[in-house]
């Protein structure tokens, strides 16, 4: 049986029918072809599927699509507005905070969620915020530096 749900996906209002057992990750990837969020483990252990639901980072592989009803969803594809990279995306490039790129969308969304909630995090807070996002390539250092740079810029702009 399918359920009709309404939600905002990357600033667009959506009405969609989904089966009750489908995950939100499956729906955004398969039905909307938003494939930035990846399935690395399907069990909420790697963070590659991290997206924002009502500004909070969640593992989309663990959330049922029907639970998205009435929620606001932001994926990596919705982060650049008018084709301009978000500061955090630019910072990842500038710091070489990515290698194979597979964890990158999830990592950026976790970083973005932190900065939305806490624009001036400490390095420890950054590490904590991304501790649910596994990266096998970078050793994390440049990722932490990239997120800290956005925080520092925001702070000095005040």
């Amino acid at each position: 049986m399918k359920h009709k749900i309404n939600f905002i996906l990357n600033n667009e209002e959506i009405t969609h029918e989904v089966a009750a057992n489908r995950t939100l990750l499956d729906v955004i990837r398969e039905d909307f072809d938003l494939t930035g969020a990846k399935e690395g483990c399907g069990a909420g252990e790697c963070g590659a599927c991290t997206i924002l639901v009502d500004r909070k980072p969640i593992n989309a592989c663990l959330m049922l699509a029907v639970e998205a009803d009435g929620k606001e969803i932001l994926t990596i594809e919705g982060l650049s507005v008018n084709n301009k990279l978000d500061q955090i995306q630019q910072a990842f490039i500038d710091h070489a905070a990515l290698q194979c790129g597979y964890c990158t969308p999830g990592m950026i969304m976790s970083g973005k969620a932190l900065l939305m909630d806490n624009p001036s995090p400490t390095e420890e807070e950054v590490k904590e915020a991304i501790s649910g996002n596994l990266c096998r390539c970078t050793g994390y250092k440049k990722i932490v530096e990239a997120i800290m740079e956005v925080a520092d810029k925001t702070n000095s702009a005040r």
Binding site: D33, T35, K38, Q89, A96, T104, P105
Partner: peptide, 24 residues
């Protein structure tokens, strides 16, 4: 020189299609 990665933009925007992202 510390040139930026040439694959940076497609990776930070999530637009790079890996095999499991391909639908046919």
């Amino acid at each position: 020189e510390s040139v930026n990665r040439v694959d940076g933009i497609k990776k930070v925007t999530g637009s790079l299609k890996y095999v499991d992202d391909l639908k046919m």
